[in-house]
Structure formats: structure tokens, C-alpha cells
Design a protein around this nucleic acid. Sequence first.
DNA 1: CCATATCGTTAAGATTCGTTAATAAATCAG
DNA 2: CTGATTTATTAACGAATCTTAACGATATGG
Lengths: 217, 217
Amino acid sequence: MTKILMIEDDAQYASLLSTYLKQYNIEVTNYEDPYLGLSAGVEKYDLLILDLTLPGMDGLEVCKEVVSKYDIPIIISSARSDLSDKVIGLQLGADDYLPKPYDPQEMYARIISLLRRYKKNNSLEVPTYRLMLDEEKETVLLDSVILDLTAAEYAVLKLLIQHRGATVSKEQILYDSEVFQQGSDGSLAVILNRLRKKLGEDIQLKTVRGVGYRLLS
Amino acid sequence: MTKILMIEDDAQYASLLSTYLKQYNIEVTNYEDPYLGLSAGVEKYDLLILDLTLPGMDGLEVCKEVVSKYDIPIIISSARSDLSDKVIGLQLGADDYLPKPYDPQEMYARIISLLRRYKKNNSLEVPTYRLMLDEEKETVLLDSVILDLTAAEYAVLKLLIQHRGATVSKEQILYDSEVFQQGSDGSLAVILNRLRKKLGEDIQLKTVRGVGYRLLS
DNA sequence: CCATATCGTTAAGATTCGTTAATAAATCAG
DNA sequence: CTGATTTATTAACGAATCTTAACGATATGG
């Protein structure tokens, strides 16, 4: 479990990101007050996401302090489109910069990239999954090998990967994926049976009785 | 000007690729010694092409080191047909894999694809897709090579390229392209079969069952 | 004109894949 | 434990699509 410390005064924004990252087994702890956050034990976290547009204080000062005291990768974000924030932030020792509003997916990509760079120093466990979705090519990779899937199989597995770790309801699968014409629960059961055979025993597609299905790990 | 760092002990091979890529405004700098190459300033380059079959050392180790230290897209190549090289390389963080001997054209395509994915600031003026439509000349280019197509094949492929990534219905194809006289779904299937043969496995013309066809990427 | 080549079309058989159905297995309520 | 409900498993069906070969119209060239 990767743990991220977030200092962001917009609680809604923080919650959104937290929910999104949970599916990748990343835990986000947010503090609206920077000094409350810093006193929470920075060393316990793997990465810091710092909002520069904090109310009544200079986020750059916070950044400067963290860099001098701790060895932790920092991503700064800012609602100000001011480019100087980026330059100064990076000069102060931040590792990456993302202007708000940002796509959670984009933030996730930066996080992974950053953690990988830091990996050598503090032997961090970067979440790498055996099952990866390549939406552009409409394929799924198992251990970097392209799986041979039908349209329905891909549609179902795509949803499960996108909500990795969470349960996806049968209704959502049948509705969201436009592959099914008269799709019934029975059809879905067959597709899942075929998927399980193709994925092997290591990849677990768990059924949540009465609700739907769920991809573990 | 896109700059590529290459680590390849076969100088002749490196020279060949360098010459080929020059026409696309891509500059290749090769080092036969990996550690000499890495010390040349990786951050100055847009992409790294790494040969795994280096004399007296493990290319995978080099790959691992680069991934941990730099944020640069990596294409690994290997003369060993060993598949595990590919899997391990990609798991280590490489972005693409090409077995030797490879076609320079193929390598070019991979490079363009990778640079696009990284969306870096390098403004590429080169064609973004492997498959390009030249309406004026009524031709289609695959990796800058003119394809030899019949009228019907061109008409269908033109529509698919114009709607790249989206599904084009069979009705629309039969109606829009005035090549077909009594064109039926059967005719279309034959044309698509011929197109697929001419395009090769890399270009995917996907069928959307019950609807039509679709050109991926 | 005849010979040849090209190319859209047709037809027939093979294959694919979502679906249904029948039975077995698993899970839950009382 | 018993019965009911849900899901798994397996086989089979049927429509859609693929594949292949061949046909025939048209064009080309001598």
C-alpha cells in the first residue's frame, strides 16, 4: 500500500483524487492546513502532493521547508496559471508540477513515474499489476503479453480493471458495455467463465453474490 | 529536431538507422559503450534506444538504471530471440521492444508512436500516424510508402482513415463510396479481407459486429 | 478481334461469438 | 439440515463474419 500525503484546501478535490487512487491501492491522506499536515509525520508517507494556492499563506514556503527537512518526492499543483509558480517550485526542489484542474489519471501517471524514479533510493514498492489495460489499442496485457479477447470479454474486463479492487455491478456491466444486445445475467456468467479460463488461476475475478464482480489486486 | 540517444555495439547497424532517421529530422547519437553513453547527458535526449546484447554486460541492468534515474522513453532491441528479454525489459520500465534485425521503417514508426505518447514538448512535424491519406493523389501511405490499392479498397480505407478511431457503419461505406455498384455486405467483407492482407498485422481494421468497421490508432 | 489482366461481385463453406438452456455447484435463509 | 436462490459449467444454436475460389464485365495491348 502506497501512502500519499496531500495538502489541499479544497476538500472536494482531495476526496475526488483519493477515491480515484484507491483503485490502484494508493491511500491518500489530506490536510487542509499545511502545518497540521507536516506535523502528521511526513516520513510515514511515500509522496507529497502540495497545493500552492493555500489560503493566507505561501505554498512555496511550505515546499521549501519540506525539501530541507525531508527526503520525499513532491508534486506541486496550482490553480494559478502563473508559470513562475512552476519554475520556482521546481527550483525549490519539487519533482513535478501539475496545474489545476488536472485529470486524476494524469496525476496517477505522474505519481507512478515519480515513485519509480525514487524507487532505487528507498526501495519503494511501486504498484505493478500483472493485468494492464491498453485502451488505445483496445487490448489487455497479462504479464506484457496481449490477451486474445472477444469484444464482450474485453468490454467486461476493461470495466473490472478500471475499477480494480472495487465491485462492479452486473447492471453496470450490461449497461455500460454496448456489446451486449439482449445480454442477461446468464450471458455475463458465461463471459466471466471464459475470462477466468483465459486469465488463469493467478488472476482472480471474484463474484459478489447478488451484486456483481470484482477484480482482486 | 528530435534527438535520440542510442546504445548499440554494432556501429554499422547504428549508422544505418542514423542515416535513415535523418530524413525525418531525427538526430541519432550512438555510443558503443553504455556507461559512456549514460554519462553523455541523458536528459538532453528525447528517447533512448538500448541494445540488450551488449558485449560483456547485462543490458537489462543498464535499462534498470536509466529508468530509475531518468524520465525518458526507452525502446529496447535484442538479437536474442528470447522472449523473456522483452517481458523483463518492459517490466523494468522500458516502453517498447523490437527484436533484431528490425526494419528502420518499423523502428521509425515505434519512435513516433512513443514520442506521441509522452507528449513532450518536442514539436514533431512528421506524420503522426503510420497510415496517412493523400486525397489529392488518391493514395494511402503506410510508413510513407504508397500502397497499391484498387478503387474499392481505396474508397473503403479512405472512409476508415477519415473516421480514424470511430466506427464506420457498413451502410455508410456502401453508400458513401460510389465505387460499389451492387455492393453487398459480402463484397465489403471481401474488400476488408484484402485490405487486411495488404496492411499487415500492425494496422488493425477492427470489425464491430452488427455495425461496421473501425481503424484503430 | 483475340488474349490477357484487372477487379468488383457472388457463392459456398468455415469460423467466430453472443446467446440460450440444462445441469451442477455454491451460498444463504430459516 | 432443508429448500430456495444465485452462480458456474458445459454444450449447443444461430446469426454474423471471414475466407476462398471462381465468375464475368471491362480494359489493355498486340
